[in-house]
Amino acid sequence: MTVISTDKNPEALSLTLVAEFDAGVERVWQLFEDPRRLERWWGPPTYPATFYKHDFVPGGRASYYMTGPGGDKAHGWWEFTSIESPRELQFDDGFADSDGNPTGEFGISHATVTLEPLGERSRMTMLSTFESEEQLEQMMQMGMEEGLKEAVGQMDGILAEHANA
């Protein structure tokens, strides 16, 4: 399992996930930069993601949906606020309608993904911050922490496939 720890901090309105990989930061970065690789792990195995827009530049947007076991679709969006390849990525995140437009439902969260080299390995720290304690609790009740752990747990398999990429 790649996930080392998760920490929910109601005082800081945050959820932090730390994972380590048997791959350098450049290869882990590709799992965010390439939408075909991103959609293979973003979302737990029972809710795979499809990215139909992925404008990976500061100010750019990504639009996606996750398809549940019964065929239901949960739509989301990201707005990239900072990209410092291959070390740090920041984006705002929220729910969307079927056309990819933000709904405002459940508020907006902000994610900061930091990649650090550990020799030939790497550590990823994913910090999600929320607008309120109520929003944080809503996301936890919806299964965000467990879903994120399951999603990130899929990254090793993709990295192994692309070991020579």
Rank of each mutant, 00 (worst) to 15 (best):
R36S: 13
S128L: 15
F32P: 03
E145T: 10
T16N: 00
V18A: 11
T112M: 06
R40S: 07
T112A: 04
F56G: 09
T125Q: 03
K53L: 10
L15E: 03
F21C: 09
K53H: 03
T50Y: 15
E161A: 07
V18T: 15
S132N: 05
E79A: 08
R123W: 00
G60T: 02
N101Q: 15
G24Q: 12
E150F: 07
F95E: 07
W77S: 08
G24P: 10
D34E: 11
E88Q: 11
F91M: 11
S109R: 02
N101F: 13
L159S: 10
Q90H: 09
G143R: 06
M155P: 04
S122R: 00
L17A: 10
P58I: 11
N9M: 06
L127Q: 06
F51V: 07
T112H: 05
T125F: 00
G76S: 10
G76M: 06
D99V: 07
M1K: 07
R61K: 15
G24T: 10
E11M: 03
V3K: 05
T112K: 07
F80R: 00
E20D: 05
L136W: 01
V57M: 09
H162S: 11
L17Q: 12
G60W: 09
Y64V: 08
Q135R: 07
G100R: 12
I158W: 03
D22C: 02
R36T: 14
M139D: 03
G71H: 13
M124Q: 12
Y64Q: 14
L38Q: 10
G24V: 08
A111F: 09
Q135Y: 01
Q90R: 11
F130H: 12
M126Q: 12
E39V: 11
